[in-house]
């Protein structure tokens, strides 16, 4: 467990409250964790780790930069419900899926067992924000958080193909959602004036 890996769920929880502004920090933490995963386990392919780190940085920085100019208009924020659901799910993950047990049961050997719990916590936090926050920018931030968690889990998975498939589909998904978010945010600022 590295420091970046330990701080990543905290950044995910902050991104539920803070939206897109916290997201570059989460992306940086994910990228650093992925690269250090590679350092802990030398027999992994370096190219896939760099690919995952680059995708994590790209999906965290580019949407924040692109959506910086648009305003967010949401009457009922729903931060409390999303935060409590995320905390509950994270606690459930920590209580029901200890990393050592997962390693003992599973037939396939993951790269770093402690990253399983962390990535599941990040994914659940993101999905809680995606489901319960109102306002497209916060929901989009939740989607990106969940994508970061998925990328961490993919870098942790033993299959070599997983990284390329997951990274490619996440890039596609985020591109489409960014396009939709830009159009929706434009509509909102139009209706305000």
């Amino acid at each position: 467990m590295t420091l970046a890996l330990a701080l990543a769920p905290l950044a995910a929880l902050l991104s539920v409250a803070g939206g897109l502004t916290v997201l570059p920090i989460l992306g940086l933490l994910t990228a650093v964790s992925v690269v250090t995963l590679h350092h802990l386990n030398q027999d992994l392919n370096a190219a896939r780790m760099l690919f995952v780190a680059a995708v994590a940085l790209a999906i965290s920085v580019i949407p924040t930069w692109k959506l910086n100019d648009y305003t967010e208009e949401s009457r009922t924020p729903g931060t409390l419900a999303a935060l409590s659901l995320a905390l509950f799910l994270g606690f459930t993950v920590c209580a029901s899926l200890p990393a050592e047990e997962a390693v003992r049961i599973s037939s396939v050997m993951p790269v770093n067992p402690s990253a399983i719990t962390t990535s599941l916590m990040i994914i659940f936090t993101g999905l809680a924000a995606l489901a319960l926050r109102t306002g497209i920018k916060y929901q989009f931030a939740g989607l990106l958080t969940a994508c970061n968690g998925i990328l961490l889990a993919a870098a942790n998975a033993p299959q070599t193909r997983a990284v390329w498939i997951v990274g490619g589909s996440i890039l596609l998904l985020v591109t489409t959602c960014l396009w939709l978010a830009q159009r929706l945010s434009l509509l909102r600022s139009d209706s305000d004036f």
Binding site: L97, E101, A102, I105, S106, S107, V108, P110, I116, S119, L120, I123, G126, L127, L130, A131, L143, A146, C147, G149, I150, A153, A154, N156, A157, P158, A162, V166, S169, L173, C177
Partner: peptide
């Protein structure tokens, strides 16, 4: 996206 991300997390987590 939430459905697909849930399935992906289920397939990637080996627990």
């Amino acid at each position: 996206a939430s459905g697909a991300l849930l399935v992906l997390s289920g397939l990637l987590a080996p627990g």
